[in-house]
Nucleic acid binder design. Sequence first.
DNA 1: CTTTTCACG
DNA 2: ACGTACGTGAAAAGT
Length: 886
Amino acid sequence: MTKKNKLLLIDGSSVAFRAFFALHQQLERFKNKSGLHTNALYGFHNMIESVLTKEKPSHVLVAFDAGKTTFRNEFFNEYKSGRSKTPNEFTEQMPYLRELLDGFGIKHYELSNYEADDIIGTLSDTVDPAIFDVVIISGDRDLTQLAKENVRVDITVKGVSELKEYTIESIADEMGIKPKQIIDLKGLAGDTSDNIPGVTKIGEKTALKLLKEYHSVEGVYEHIDELKKSKMKENLINEKEVAFLSKRLATIMLDTPITIGVNDLAYNGPDIEKLVQFYKEMDFKTHLSKLDTTEYDAANEEKREEVAYKFVTEIIPEMFTDKTGLYLEMLTDNYHTSEIISVGWGHENHIYVSDPEIVLNSPYFKEWAQDAALSKQVFDVKRTYVALNRYGIELKNSQFDILLASYILNTKDNSKDLSEVAIEHDYYNVSPDESIYGKGAKIHIPEDVSIMHEHIAHKIKAIVLLSEQLERHLAQNNQTELFYDMELPLAMVLAKMEISGIKVDAQRLREMKVEFAERLIGIENRVYELAGETFNLNSPKQLGVILFEKMGYPVIKKTKTGYSTAVDVLEQLRDQAPIVEDILEYRQIAKLQSTYIEGLLKVIHGNSGKIHTRYMQTIAQTGRLSSIDPNLQNIPIRLEEGRKVRQAFVPSHEGWKIFASDYSQIELRVLAHISDDDHLKEAFIEGQDIHASTAMRVFGIEKQEDVTPAMRSQAKAVNFGIVYGISDYGLSKNLDISRKEAQLFIDTYFDKYPGVKIYMEDIVREAKEKGYVETLFHRRRYLPDINSRNFNLRSFAERTAMNTPIQGSAADIIKVAMIEMDKRLETEGLKATMLLQVHDELIFEAPESEIPLLEKLVAEVMENAVALNVPLKVDSSSGDSWYDSK
DNA sequence: CTTTTCACG
DNA sequence: ACGTACGTGAAAAGT
C-alpha cells in the first residue's frame, strides 16, 4: 500500500533566523517602501516555495517558539542564554511571517512554555506511520534526533533553500549512531549555540567514540570504571550531573500538550488574494509577477498600464524614423529557424504592430532597417539581425540592445525573456511571454490576436524606455565603452559567424556511427557476461547496483542519490575489477555516439549541409561566450577516438581549407599582466616553457634539462590551480597528494611569485569592499557571498574573485580580436570567413591561396588585440578539416 | 524537471 | 570542522 499523506513540519523560528542571517549582508537591499526589512521574509518565502513544490505535502504546519523562557529554563536557567540579543531588524519581521503563511494557506502554531522542536517532535511521533510520511525542516541539527522510519529531517545548509536530508541511514553513515543517540551526543559534547554545557573537553569526536562503545550517557557511566585513567575520565566523573542535565536539555519532548491535531493541518494551496496583498506590502515584485494564476492576471490586467498602439496592415515611410524600437516575436528560441509571428516598432507614444508578411515584404521597412543613418533600439540584436537576414534584410545601426546592456550591468541577469530583464530594472509593464503564449508543447498564439499585439506594444515601449535608462546606468559604471566598443559590435560579428555556419560531412559521421554501433554492442555483451545479467548500461543507478551490490566492489564515492560511478571512481576500481575497463570504454564510445555523432547529425541543415550554432553572449558569468544548439565549443580533442569527430568539420567550398589560431597560455599571460609579478612576466617575455619555468622555481632547479616530465606536470597543475583560485584541497585532489603537500606547493609558489600572491590577496580584499570584481575592460561580476559567514559560500566567492578577472579579461581580449579580425578580413578583401570561437581559439575557412596571408594576419590581429606588459602568442595551423588543422 | 555524467577551454 | 578546484552545454535516466 502506498502512503497517501505527507506531513511537512517546519521549525519556523529557526528557519526564519537562518534566513535572516543568510541574507544579512544584503540587509539594506531588502527593505519595503515603509522601511521594513524583509530579508528573513524573503528567504523564508523562497524556502517554503521550493519545499512545497518538491515535497507536495498533504498536511503542513509551521511551529514557532513561544516567548523567551520555556520549561527547560525551569531546571537550567542559563538555557539558550549567551546568545547575542536578537536584532531588531529580525524581530520586526516576525509578525509578517504569519501573514506570509496565511497567504500560502499554511497553518502555524505555538505553545507557551514550549519550543517549536517540542511541537514538531510530538506531532511527528504521534502520527500513524502507516498513513503519514513526515518531513521536518529546521535550521537546527538537534532535530535530527527525530528521524525515524517514516520521518526525514531536512536541515538548512546553504542559506535556507538548500537542505541536507537526514534519515536513519544517513545519520548512521555519517556519524555511526542512531537518531536517538543525538541526545546522548549533546549530553556529552554539549552545544554552544543553545548553551548546553556538556562535559569539559569532550567534543563531537570523542563523544561519538564513547557512544560507539557504550551507546548512551547512561551506558558510559555504567562502565565508567572500565575507562583508562585519563583527564577525560576525571571530567566525566566530576561532571556527571552536567552530562545528565545536558542530555535532558537536548531531549525534544514527544508528549507536548498540544491543542491541535494532524487533521487540522490539511494543506489546500495558497490564498492568492492574501498572497498578492503580502507581496505588494513587501515589494516582492518578482514574486508578484511570477504568480501566473488567473486571479493574478485579472488583478494585474487592471494594474498594467495600457499602451497605445496601432495595428497596421499598410506600411508607409512616415512610420519609420531615427531612434526607433524594433521587436520581432518568435515562439521558440532558435532564431535560425523559428517563424516570425509578429513585428512591432515605434517610440514611446507611437507604436505600431503588424503581421510579418506585411512588414517584412514592405520596401519601406527594408529601406529603414538597412539605413545606417537611422538608429534602432532592440532586445537581443543578434537574434533580430539573424532573423531579418533570413528575409534578405540587413539590419544596420542598432544603437542599443537592452539585453546586452543588462548583462553588462549585471552578468547574473541571463534571462532571455524581455519581461524578466525589464523587471530587473524596475520596469513592470510587460507580461512574461509564458502568460501570453503558454509553455512547453502547448505554446501557441492566443486566439484573440490583439492580446499578442498589445503584448508586443508593451515590449516596444519597454525597449525604448529602458534603452535610455540603461545607457545612463552604463555610464555611471564606466561601462559605456565595454558596451559600444565591444559587446554591441561583437554581436554583429557573431551574427555573421552564425549565419555562415560550418559545413559538416554527414557521410563521414554516418560511417563513424555504424562503426561505433558495432563496437558498443560488442562491449555491452562482454559487460553483461561479466555481470551475469543484462541491464541498462547507461543508467548510473543500475550500474551502481551491479558493481557495488551484486559484484561487491568497494564503494568509493556516493552521490546525493546513490553510488557514484563517475570516471575517477571507476578508475580506482580498475585493478580489482576487469569489468570496469569495458564500462569505461563503453562510456566513452556511448558519449561520442549520442552527443556528437547522433547529436550533430540531427542539427545539420538539410539544404546547405551546414551547422549553425547560436553563441550566447549573455550567459557566462565571466564574460565568455557559450554555444548551444549545438554546442560547438566542446567538440572532442583530448582523446584520439573522439578527436576524429573533427574530421567531419570541413570547408564549404572545393579547394578551401580550415584555418585555426589559438592563444598560447592566455590566462597565465593575463595573470602576469594584472599581477605584474616579475618572475611570471620574465618567463613570458623570454619565451620560456611556462610550466617548466614554474617547475624550476618551485622545485628549485637550475637547468631546464633537469626538469623531469613529472615535475613539469605537477607545476602545470599548480598553474591551473592558481588560475582557478587556488585551494589546498583542490590541488591535492588533482595531484592525488595530501593536503599538507598541496599547501606546501602553494606556499612555495607564492614565495617564488610574490606578485601573484599580492594580487590574490588584493583582489579578494577589493571584492570584499566593493562587492564585485572587474576585468581589464570593466566587465563586472558581483559576488554577494564574499562576506558570507558560511565557509563554503565565502570560499567559493573568494576563488571566483581570483579567477574572474583572469578568465574574464582573456574573454575580453579575444572579443576585441574578433571585432578587429572581422574588419580586417573585409578591408583586406579576403574571402576567408570566421566561423567559430572556442574561448581562446578562432576557426576560419579560406581558399588555400589565402592561407599564407592568414597565417600572418590572424596572428598579428590576435597578438595585438591589446597591449599587455607581456607578449601574447598565437599558434596557427590549417588543413582539409578541423581535425587536420592541428 | 532534476540529477548524473562527460565533452570542451 | 566545514568539503570545491574556474567557466560552460547535452544526453539519458528517473522521478
